[in-house]
Amino acid sequence: MKESIYTIPLMDAFRSEDECPFCFLERQIEEHSIDFVLGSGASYMEDDIRAQTDAAGFCRHHYKKLYDYGNRLGAALILSTHFHKLNAELDTEIKKFTPGKSSLMKRFKKSGSEDAPATSIGQWVQSQTSHCYICDHIRSDYERYLDTFFELYKKEPSFKELFENSKGFCLTHFGDLADLADSRLGNKEKDAFYPALFQLMQENLKRLEDEVLWFTEKYDYRNRDKDWGTSRDSIQRCMQKDRGGHPADPPYESDR
């Protein structure tokens, strides 16, 4: 298969021996995105990039990441134009806002019982908070990596071997692979893929169960002098396997 900007990082992620190669990739994408937004390349000074960050904004999680990164001036410049846009749009929304007519049924409805916002202001807020410049970038690249995964699986024996010898995936990415394989693979390919995927998950979830159990048993005085084995970092690896990410990572900071 011809190499692309997605094949090499994907192969490297499977060679990393991470608990989930796709979590490994998402961390790389996220860090590259933060560097792009606030790093030394000063993309935040480019009008087209600022227009995109003004429009999408950032989620709570990535605002914290951007704050930890350390470029205060860059963050302030991004926020200055983003808030200029927010204020202009809020003024427009408030001017055209009209409350809905009250009714007995509305009064008896539980708060949050419906997904759709009840007012135009609620709809506007939902539109503002449903996007994040970095989340959107991660999601887009992740989808391309999933496509590349199945292309490599079908065409590259060496990649299939990497997959079969990996530590499996976090539950979220395991679910994505199980769902997508149904439409991306032929019947014969599914007959090989699903048993391999399921065996990987069962073996590696059991491995982590044993490791974190030994972590707890090491606190028994009778095991004080016994070897920790691979259990010392089992807590964060179990957390990753269950919900993804790398919970023990320190804040990602600018190298300036």
Rank of each mutant, 00 (worst) to 15 (best):
V212N: 08
Q202W: 07
Y194M: 05
D179I: 04
V212F: 08
K190P: 00
A196R: 02
A181L: 04
L180F: 09
L208F: 01
F193K: 01
G186M: 08
S183I: 15
V212A: 08
T172Q: 11
N204I: 01
K188I: 08
F174Q: 05
A192F: 02
D191V: 05
E209P: 01
Q202M: 10
L205Q: 11
A178E: 14
C170N: 08
A178C: 05
Y194T: 02
L200C: 10
E209L: 06
Q199D: 11
R207I: 03
A192W: 01
A196H: 02
D176K: 14
G186K: 13
N187F: 06
L180N: 11
E211K: 10
E211C: 04
D210N: 11
L177N: 02
F174K: 02
K188R: 12
F193H: 01
R207T: 07
D191L: 09
D191R: 07
L185D: 02
D176Q: 11
Q202A: 15
D179H: 05
E203W: 06
A196E: 04
P195E: 13
K188H: 08
Y194K: 00
L205D: 07
L200T: 10
A192D: 08
D182P: 00
N204M: 00
L171K: 15
H173G: 05
M201S: 15
L185K: 00
N204A: 03
N204K: 12
F198G: 11
N204C: 06
A192H: 02
D182N: 08
S183N: 11
G175F: 05
L180T: 05
L177C: 09
R184D: 00
L205M: 10
D179A: 14
Q202N: 13
